[in-house]
């Protein structure tokens, strides 16, 4: 394999892994604070739509990012209200968010543009330009989010408290710190990162929004989160690995490998899901989620 092919593979893997990474880090913040989020997919989708619509209207990709982030944070707050304030079931709320996102983006997109749910194609400044080494700004923002997440969660007082809320909220409460406040902060950060992921999909990677364009990326991000055992640096490596799988699958389409024959693309596509199932079953290592994740905090006993 010569260098240019290899370089091309690296670049496309990186591009494909960015939305996964941003969504994976989003899930990391939420779940580390004890709020399980299977609605990453839905938040990415609304962000992708809002970003494309705003970028089209304003002609600026950055306005798109702002709108995408705003939309994802709004949906994150719905999830937060249901699961933190109302102590509802977090899984149920996540399912609702995903369905709402699929339906709303399609309906509103169709009503606004009448193109079967698509937004008009974006061009010029309405898309993120390549700024460095052939990659656009959201790529670097997402990569930057990895050390920031690692540092803030691991090395600051806020991060320590946030992780404590995900393990033992009663202890944090006893120390006089608001469990609700910390969890809302985590959920909002989760929304911001989902906004980044969705915006990159519609305004960076593609030139506009397509119905259901997340196509399961939010769930692969969830798988990557489990694989990375809820930690920032491993999240980077896992998402890049899943990105490589995706890039290789695209390249191997219809190619016959010597000695193996044609590798079905679906076999490679199935790998992230399969690996996650195997990991969760404890066959290779063990993935243990934050202890209090999924359970609402009830103050008085």
């Amino acid at each position: 394999m010569d260098v240019s092919v290899f370089g091309g593979l690296f670049d496309s893997s990186l591009r494909l892994s960015i939305p996964l990474l941003a969504a994976c880090l989003a899930g990391l913040w939420s779940e580390r604070s004890g709020v399980v989020d299977i609605g990453l997919e839905g938040k990415m989708l609304v962000a992708a739509f809002a970003a494309a619509a705003a970028a089209h209207a304003s002609g600026s990709a950055w306005v798109g990012l702002l709108a995408g982030t705003g939309a994802a944070v709004a949906f994150a707050l719905i999830h937060g209200f249901a699961s933190i304030s109302q102590r509802g079931n977090q899984i149920v709320s996540g399912v609702a968010i995903n369905m709402l996102a699929v339906g709303l983006t399609a309906i509103v997109g169709n009503a606004w543009y009448g193109q079967g749910g698509r937004t008009p194609p974006l061009e010029g400044a309405a898309r993120f330009d390549e700024i460095f080494l052939g990659h656009s700004a959201p790529v670097f923002l997402t990569l930057l989010a990895v050390p920031v997440t690692w540092f803030v969660l691991g090395k600051t007082r806020f991060g320590l408290r946030l992780r404590a809320v995900g393990e033992n909220p009663a202890a944090v409460d006893t120390a006089g710190i608001s469990v609700t406040g910390l969890r809302y902060a985590a959920v909002i950060i989760c929304g911001v990162l989902c906004g980044l992921a969705g915006t990159y999909l519609s305004v960076g990677q593609s030139a506009g929004f397509l119905p259901n364009m997340t196509a399961g990326k939010g769930f692969i991000a969830l798988a990557a989160l489990i694989f990375a055992k809820w930690r920032a640096w491993p999240a980077l490596f896992t998402c890049f690995l899943f990105g490589v799988l995706d890039a290789v699958a695209i390249r191997l389409q219809g190619v016959s490998l010597p000695g193996i024959g044609e590798v079905p693309v679906q076999a490679i596509q199935a790998l992230p899901y399969l690996l996650t199932v195997i990991l969760l079953a404890g066959v290779i290592g063990k993935a243990i989620p934050p202890r209090a994740s999924g359970s609402p905090y009830v103050k008085e006993r």
Partner: peptide
């Protein structure tokens, strides 16, 4: 009414899951 696509059913489903499921306590 072409503006109201069948995705409306998905939206209603989502809201019902949110209201009857996650926000049941409310």
């Amino acid at each position: 009414r072409p503006a109201i696509t069948r995705d409306m059913v998905v939206v209603i489903g989502g809201i019902i899951i949110l209201f009857a499921g996650a926000l049941e306590g409310l």
